[in-house]
């Protein structure tokens, strides 16, 4: 709890400019939410998996996927039981007072599964964010637009481990005095925890005055805010940004012209309804694979390593 969830490993993907990394992850997120075509969703999942692998985060991904699978089960169940739009009825259930007759159709299960993959995509994209973007980089990026908010966030991020430590200390002191936090009814447990919060707040509020004085001593608010940039924009960032732009452009243009659209109800459509769908899918996926390909080149190709 003392360290960021992000771990610095000196990876290629971690060396990306925060703007390029955000553009890449944002593009993936928009496409994962915009497309409901199973092939596109599966393709984005594949890209996310490959990129997580290149970011050496398979263990973290596993813990994220476990959460995702629980929610996915819920999505499949609710879709299967509550949606009656499908034509291929697999099972006709009893009449339930509020919800009507329960029917389970093949289409509803299929839609639930596709949406489950969409959820896994979204969760994987955020997992990637944790793996490749340092929180300080994000704070630094936004500090030019929102000075005060990022200052609050940076201060709070610095103080979180301190507060967590204090919390543990106060708790340990209370335990030595004989308070058992795991015993009692809900009300008693909350009352015991309230003692912790009370002590924590009382002992921490004075700190904020010291921080404020320290800020004042460093000339906070005396004039326009100055800032410095630590992150250089490199050719690798341009290439990643270009890949994301191609993927986003092709994806949105495809959607606008009906490629990558898919009908689940009342009957499932054909997965591949023409060359356009496949072409747009390939362009989108190759655009999104740009960071993973560059990572491969950075490790394997000396020429590319020197250039990017």
């Amino acid at each position: 709890m003392r360290k960021f969830f992000y771990a610095e490993k000196g990876l290629f993907l971690q060396s990306l400019h925060p703007l390029a990394a955000l553009a890449f992850l944002g593009t993936m997120l928009v496409l994962a939410l915009a497309f409901s075509h199973p092939l596109y969703l599966a393709g984005i999942f594949l890209v996310a998996g490959v990129t997580v692998w290149t970011a050496e985060g398979l263990e973290t991904w596993e813990s994220y996927l476990k959460i995702g699978l629980v929610m996915m089960t819920l999505i499949v169940l609710i879709n299967a039981l509550m949606v009656h739009e499908g034509r291929t009825i697999l099972w006709r259930g009893p009449l339930i007072p509020v919800f009507g007759r329960i029917t389970i159709s093949l289409e509803a299960i299929y839609y639930g599964l596709a949406m489950g993959v969409r959820l896994l995509n979204v969760i994987s994209i955020f997992c990637l964010f944790n793996l490749i973007v340092h929180p300080d980089k994000i704070i630094n990026l936004f500090s030019r637009f929102a000075g005060k908010s990022t200052l609050v966030i940076a201060l709070a991020a610095r103080m979180f481990p301190v507060m967590a430590q204090r919390y543990e200390n106060i708790r340990a002191v209370q335990q030595i005095r004989g308070v058992d936090f795991s015993r009692g009814t809900l009300k008693e447990k909350v009352q015991k925890s309230s003692l912790l919060i009370n002590s924590l707040i009382l002992s921490s509020l004075e700190d904020s005055l010291e921080i404020a004085e320290s800020m004042q001593a460093r000339a906070f608010g005396s004039g326009p805010r100055s800032r410095y940039r630590r992150h250089r924009w490199q050719p690798r960032d341009t290439l990643c940004l270009a890949g994301s732009a191609v993927a986003l452009g092709a994806g949105l243009a495809g959607l606008f012209h009906g490629f990558g659209a898919y009908t689940f109800y009342p009957q499932m459509g054909c997965l591949v309804d023409g060359p356009g769908t496949v072409a747009v899918l390939l362009i989108v996926l190759s655009g999104l694979l740009a960071p993973a390909i560059l990572n491969w080149g950075w490790h394997r190709c000396t020429f590319l390593r020197l250039k990017i």
Partner: peptide
């Protein structure tokens, strides 16, 4: 003011630290 910013940051950090599970109850 600087005092308000520091206070908001301290309260946020305390509220955030409150998310660390301390009672064996989910969501409390």
């Amino acid at each position: 003011s600087s005092r308000e910013i520091a206070l908001i940051a301290v309260l946020s950090a305390i509220a955030a630290a409150g998310r660390i599970p301390f009672a064996a109850l989910p969501n409390v």
